[in-house]
Amino acid sequence: MEKEAIPAATKYPEKPITLIVPFGVGGGIDLVARTVEKSASTHLGQPLVVINKPGGTGTIGWNEVASASPDGYTLAMTGIEIILQPLYGPTKFHYPSALEPIAQITELSLIMAVQADQPWNTLEDLIAYAKEHPGEIKFGHPGIGGINHVLGETFAKTANIQLEQVPFQSGAEAMSNLLGGHIQVVFLNPAAVKEQLKAGKVKALALGGEKRLTDPIFATIPTFKEQGLDVVCNSWNGIAAPKGLPEDVKKKLSEGIKKVIDDPEFQRNMENLGLQVTYLGPDDSAKKWLIDSQQLTKTVQETGIAENIKTQKK
């Protein structure tokens, strides 16, 4: 049936499509990729095969995709790191221009959380405490220069308080240190906070998004903006291809991916992971990359993160 529908010139896809995840198995982005993999074959006509190529904060995997032939058979999972990494020093490719977006799958509004038995119930309480005790509050995040770190520093700068950052290897490690009382604050994505929030082990003080989240567990968390601070920092995950896909391939691919994302089962699976599906098509994603690039270039300079990393690299 399908054969009749497709003109001879565009037989794509004829073989399984490789989706490279430039991070290790088990991370948040890997889970998104595997949720796509799970629903893909019915909508794409061919299986999607996830391959992990971890290392170098994503650069090893993205380098491989950026130098792959643009035939639609090698794709990459992307995240906000493709914008951030080139800001910290030379990378082999300038990813925002060496790759082209096919879709944005999800947008993650980061959550600022503290241990449940801390005396702070609002952002105001914490800011007041931090003003009296400069440098005493330590915040954890999974990796220097990552979006969680950027959010933490942006918050501290906007609120005009001094927070010390403690880097961890993963969100889970930051969370266990928060629960153990070794640090006081974490900035993590909703999935990493959900279970602890549900069990009443942590309190969420603020959300990094423009709007509140819809999931009832998160719906009560006010945004930074609602609490009078101009702090917005969102992370996202999507799929991209090497620049220069043939028009027809790009069209079929983005339509196929859109069908995957519209699939109710996919949406349910994402919801289970604590992730909100926020679809953007190829053009809208490209616009977003541009806006994020401009915004983050400014942020990492103003917060001193870029400078900090560059001096260490020397």
């Binding site: 290790g24 198995v25 889970a172 490690e173 279970e195 549900k198 069990a199």
Partner: peptide, 25 residues
């Protein structure tokens, strides 16, 4: 719900892909 080593991290992924999120509850 916190994996302390590489192998439990991948187990956690396996759980989550099947819609189960380990945690205090």
């Amino acid at each position: 719900g916190l994996p302390f080593c590489g192998a439990t991290a991948i187990l956690l992924s396996g759980f989550m892909i099947h819609g189960i999120t380990p945690g205090p509850s």
